[in-house]
């Protein structure tokens, strides 16, 4: 089975490896300027949360939009990394950047282990396998000693960047988070538009043909799985530093569902869709938090309407309208 209809067709006029199109460069530049002044306009913690989820969704989109693999267990890497990073900061006393790296590496290793098994099945089985393994990680987080069970790991110290620059204040931490998430998103962009990304696209469009051309399809799938898991981990590890907390929420299956929602809403297989989707979903949760379980209902409704009515997502629709890949 193919997942080709997930991504709106992008009529790229130039080879994808020939550098960034001007339009994308302009959007990234505007985005960066906006983000640089954002802490003066909105509460920095909220902005940091949005950026972490934007990176998470972008990492997920690498796997679904460009690898054609629907993982329903990405919370395992996001939450797993947040536990490792929180533990590294609090118990080992590592500085923030080392904690984040530790969390990211842990997510990558977890992704390697789960991915190696999951890529043995395709399509909906792949989704079920990743979901089941993520649930296993959830039970581990619930029962293991170092994760603190229902309480999670609380009051994680923020420490000093490289052991020199204190990032205790929200404003200082904001620019660290901006650098990490923005850098991560640009790196993901680079992966998608590299020769590696082109092979991924070929596999997604027609796997038997890619095999017949001599590509070791499973290696590519595993590689993209590990990359996606690692960047999801980078997002989760960074989030644990922002909120000084790692909790079961981040490894629960509903988190895996949320990242699917963000990506679907923004536009699967688009560059900017996941960023927009994450912004909308996090903002919605923030403003509707007082409505309790209605948020779940609204998310469910968006899922149903999104699947039935606009599968391209918001950015996908705009992209079609402008006749340019976004």
């Amino acid at each position: 089975m193919s997942v080709s209809d997930i991504q709106p067709e992008t009529n790229e006029r130039r080879p994808a490896t020939a550098g960034m199109p001007k339009l994308h460069m302009a959007i990234f530049a505007v985005l960066f300027v906006v983000l640089a002044v954002l802490p003066m306009l909105v509460y920095p913690v909220f902005a940091m949360k949005v950026m972490c989820f934007a990176l998470f969704a972008a990492a997920f989109n690498l796997l679904l939009g460009f690898g054609g693999l629907l993982s329903f267990g990405h919370a395992a890497y996001f939450g797993g990394a947040s536990y490792v990073a929180a533990h590294a900061s609090k118990v080992w006393g590592l500085s923030p950047e080392l904690s984040i790296i530790a969390g990211t590496l842990a997510a990558g290793i977890l992704g390697l282990a789960i991915g190696a098994l999951a890529i043995r099945r395709q399509g909906i089985y792949f989704a079920m396998v990743t979901l089941a393994f993520a649930q296993m990680v959830y039970f581990f987080a619930l029962q293991a000693d170092f994760t603190g069970g229902e309480d999670g790991i609380q009051s994680v110290p923020r420490g000093s960047l490289f052991g020199i620059f204190p990032v205790d204040s929200n404003e200082a931490l904001y620019y660290l988070v901006l650098a990490v998430t923005f850098g991560g998103i640009l790196f993901l962009y680079r992966i998608v538009h590299s020769p590696f990304g082109q092979v991924l696209k070929a596999i997604r469009e027609n796997e038997p043909r890619a095999i017949s051309l001599g590509y070791r399809v499973n290696r590519y799938k595993l590689m993209v799985f590990v990359l996606s898991a690692s960047f999801a981990g980078l997002a989760g590890a960074t989030k644990s530093q922002v909120f000084q907390l790692a909790s079961l929420t981040d490894v629960h299956w509903s988190m895996s569902g949320e990242v699917v929602l963000m990506t679907l809403l923004g536009g699967v297989g688009t560059v900017f869709g996941p960023l927009l989707g994450a912004t909308i979903v996090v903002t919605m949760q923030n403003y509707l938090a007082s409505m309790g379980a209605w948020v779940t209902v609204i998310q469910g409704v968006i899922f149903v309407l999104g699947v039935l009515l606009f599968r391209e997502g918001i950015v996908g629709v705009i992209s079609k309208w402008l006749k340019r890949p976004l």
Binding site: S2, V3, F72, I124, V304, G306, V307
Partner: peptide, 17 residues
């Protein structure tokens, strides 16, 4: 469509219920 859409739709239905 791709069968994954059925999965996503029924996931949304589960959230609503």
């Amino acid at each position: 469509l791709d069968h994954l859409y059925g999965l996503l739709l029924t996931f949304g239905v589960a959230l609503i219920i």
